[in-house]
Design a protein around this nucleic acid. Structure first.
Lengths: 342, 342
DNA sequence: TTGTATGCGTTATCAT
DNA sequence: ATGATAACGCATACAA
């Protein structure tokens, strides 16, 4: 096994100079048809492929985008990754995958790694704990796009998310319209937009019905662990438990449902449930769950498109916030209730 | 925004030569304590990080491993990716993610991309249709490890998989022991090891009971689409339908279950079901499914370990086949049946 | 239209 | 212990 061919080998084989080879390769500049043929032939014969590392070093740009997600165990992020990979491919971009497991320490480590400029841009879901490192990345001219969630401190950065406030309000109104007056919500951490905005939308809908928020029914849970399940249990043990609940923390949906199942809470008879999720497996669950479906392909599309544009500096430096609408899908986990019972 | 610091800038700032900086960076060769301090200080001050591309070009090796999976929509692959990323991180390896969507064309495209030596090794699930390209990769001295599945043509390459034959035999014996005599199996394509070996294990168990294989009960389905569902429907419409079925194609589990649900086939009363899967969502399904649980963390661990060793040429060139045991988990989707009914 | 020469940032060799 | 300097493979400005 002899060592791989370089551009010089090709040039020699074709009897031309390296510039000519480079030109036919990148279609940059003129080249005589005859020579072009020779070059192509040589490339084929030598099985030549330009080395990414060399190209990158030469013109100082990386066509790799770092994708820093929370955790691929969550089908939401897994599907997001799937679509991001697809969108990236159609633009000839590579995806360097990393996960934080919602652990700030791992996130820090990942960001630290990327400081070597191995990526030309970043798409990520921040844990909320490494503000300065994200900033440092950006200050190194590595564009960053947050997807799904953001952090209040990052107002000046690009974000692609669903319409969280509106989606939560819709879910809440759905229950309100069916007579529910005591509605619980299990949200994400309030320092993330997915946590805060969904609670906001929830409160907004309550206000429309002249209802005040009951703090015992608003339970922010971390994205990690099964705090959502214990929060659910606590709500159910109240003297006046909720008749409906919105699980607005995608990462807590599964554990919450498992807890309800184990506690033999009947859905929707004992409790109406709306979830933020669009896991294809939910359709196999009994009863099928009423859900806010996140348009994952749109999130992926816009994230990649945005980061791609930034990488090519095709955009004015003003921060963008792309919000895509989510669909509300009524299924069988929510039922009507007598408002006076609440 | 001034341009990022290079090793030369650091050297200048510290009043030393680049060699000294390189030595403190890589701990290769001696350096006076005093100068070392200056260098460290300069690095800190200039916020310097060595560029990956330059390092890579210099010593011609990539610490990135390509991960080519079928599809992250399948929780099995998603979890596998999650664990591979984790294992890679602990070894300071990066993961370049690509998907085939089980499409040979996309697989070809992905492999073609990797010919640029941007990765130092590959972990993947082959579709079965790009033999020569996989070979070419390997001939370029880019080590390849197949995970989960392999192809019969690839006997000479590294593989990490579960004990497919044994696992399928166990599943089959489980049903046989409960009186089932007509047992169907929905497998993967027979040109993949996951397809062929599982059918082999199934047949082996049947033979132990003196049973002959009925071709109508053996249904290989592609990993893509919902052929598993139609195969299931066909089996059920036989004059003598199976009383038990093994869904040995992970990618077909969901669609098959959906079909059964829609057809109002009661599990396990009308049909006993064993699935190859270890999706955490299955526990929410009624009834909980008897399953062959694949030890995903072990698959990831061995894959990364193996490719890492290959990348460092720490291994004799003989191909390795790491097989890890799968657990059989009996739950509620299989029941006893009177053998005479079959 | 083609070729030469230089730079990209790092590592490694080899004098000093 | 330290510092020039030559690779590494490619792109490109500039000369021919």
């Amino acid at each position: 096994m002899k060592k791989a061919a370089t551009i010089r080998d090709v040039a020699a084989q074709a009897g031309v100079s390296v510039s000519v080879v480079s030109r036919v390769l990148n279609d940059t500049g003129p080249v005589a048809p005859a020579k072009r043929a020779q070059v192509l032939e040589a490339i084929e014969a030598l099985n030549y492929r330009p080395r990414r590392a060399a190209q990158q070093l030469s013109h100082g740009q990386s066509d790799t985008i770092g994708l820093l997600l929370a955790d691929l165990t969550n089908p939401f992020f897994a599907r997001l990754a799937d679509r991001v990979v697809a969108e990236a491919r159609s633009r000839e971009l590579q995806i360097l995958l990393m996960t934080t497991q919602e652990d700030p320490h791992l996130e820090a480590q990942a960001l630290e790694t990327l400081l070597d400029r191995s990526v030309g841009g970043m798409i990520g879901t921040p844990t909320g704990h490494n503000i300065e490192r994200w900033e440092k990345l950006a200050s190194l001219d590595i564009p960053v796009v947050f997807v799904d969630r953001s952090i209040s401190q990052f107002q000046h950065m690009d974000v692609v998310s669903i319409e969280n406030i509106e989606s939560a309000a819709t879910a809440t109104r759905h229950l309100l319209a069916r007579g529910h007056r005591r509605i619980g919500i299990i949200s994400g951490p309030l320092d993330t937009t997915t946590g805060l905005d969904r609670v906001r939308g929830y409160e907004q809908a309550l206000q429309e019905y002249g209802l005040a928020r009951d703090d015992r029914l608003v339970c922010p849970a971390p994205f990690r662990g099964d705090r959502g399940a214990t929060a659910m249990a606590q709500m159910l043990s109240l003297a006046d438990p909720p008749t409906g609940v919105i699980v607005a923390n995608t990462a807590q949906v599964r554990v919450t449902l498992r807890m309800l199942s184990q506690a033999r809470v009947s859905i929707p008879d004992d409790l109406s449930v709306v979830v933020f999720d669009d896991n294809p497996w939910t359709e196999l669950i009994q009863p099928p769950l009423t859900a806010v479906r996140q348009p994952i392909d749109m999130l992926a599309l816009h994230s990649v498109e945005l980061i791609h544009a930034r990488m090519r500096q095709k955009l004015p430096p003003t921060p963008r916030h792309v919000r895509v609408a989510a669909e509300f899908e009524e299924r069988a986990s929510t039922s009507r209730v007598d408002p006076d019972d609440g």
